[in-house]
């Protein structure tokens, strides 16, 4: 398991799309370092041959038939939009 100092805070925050202040970086590094040191105890557990649990009570083939149902009106769809135009959501220009 990775050591706490491996927490590449800038890289990870960038993957998570969160801008951190210098102060937050210092605090998070310490706090998350503590947490990582704590979770490192999972290394003690012998998990060889153990299947991971993704669902506590797994069932398979939970699906719905392909029947179209009414959705939201355009008004409702855009009701909470921070910015809208021509029935669409507006975001600052995406540079490709």
């Amino acid at each position: 398991m990775a050591k706490p100092e491996d927490l590449r805070l800038d890289h990870v925050a960038s993957l998570a799309r969160i801008a951190l202040t210098p102060d937050e970086k210092v605090r998070f590094a310490t706090q998350l370092g503590d947490v990582l040191a704590y979770v490192a105890q999972l290394n003690e557990v012998d998990v060889s041959g153990v299947e991971p649990t993704a669902h506590a009570f797994p069932v398979v083939n939970v699906w719905a038939q392909d029947i179209a149902e009414p959705g939201l009106s355009v008004e409702d769809a855009l009701r909470n939009a921070p910015e809208k135009r021509d029935n669409m959501f507006v975001v600052p220009k995406v540079v490709e």
């Binding site: 719905a64 392909d66 029947i67 179209a68 149902e69 009414p70 959705g71 939201l72 355009v74 769809a77 855009l78 021509d86 029935n87 669409m88 959501f89």
Partner: peptide, 20 residues
């Protein structure tokens, strides 16, 4: 007829944001 993970209609050429 409907989308992959919800039952609102799938389609092409509809007015913007009417298939949500």
């Amino acid at each position: 007829r409907s989308k992959m993970f919800t039952r609102v209609a799938a389609g092409y050429g509809h007015p913007e944001n009417t298939l949500t």
